[in-house]
């Protein structure tokens, strides 16, 4: 194994150092991520401390992802799986399904074979 081989880490470490220098700039313009918007998309309530922490960490991670923009992917097909997977069909045959009792055994609130949820339609 040659000594001069470019490993996996050096580019990362360089970028890391660069990012660290840039971090104050990133923080100043609130970073790349609109954390309120993305947390809404993800349906997760975050407190202020989490928002600040995740924003900084995700900006750093996204900065690291930028190396993908340097790659020439002209004409390259995207892989959604390791192998080409086409539609997989099966016969439309009736088979025994899970019982209602089993399907509801972990429901946090239930009554009459149904799951109780908060009201979704206003009275007015």
């Amino acid at each position: 194994m040659g000594e001069a081989v470019r490993g996996i880490m050096p580019r990362f470490l360089l970028e890391r150092a660069r990012l660290f220098c840039d971090l104050s700039g990133l923080m100043a313009n609130k970073g790349q991520i609109d954390i309120d918007y993305v947390a809404r998309l993800a349906r997760i309530e975050l407190d202020d401390a989490e928002k600040a922490r995740f924003s900084a960490q995700l900006d750093q991670i996204l900065g690291y992802f930028q190396k993908l923009s340097e790659v020439d992917v002209e004409g390259v097909e995207p892989s959604s799986h390791a192998y080409a997977v086409y539609n997989v069909w099966r016969g439309d045959e009736a088979t025994p399904a899970m019982s209602v009792e089993d399907a509801l055994m972990n429901a946090p609130a239930k009554r009459d074979n149904q799951i109780i949820v908060p009201k979704v339609v206003d009275d007015a």
């Binding site: 954390i35 993800a42 309530e45 995740f54």
Partner: peptide, 18 residues
């Protein structure tokens, strides 16, 4: 989801949503 998921899971769901 805020109460049920831990920190790393939240971080990855948010990154994935982004």
């Amino acid at each position: 989801r805020a109460e049920g998921f831990g920190e790393e899971v939240k971080r990855r769901i948010i990154l994935g949503s982004y």
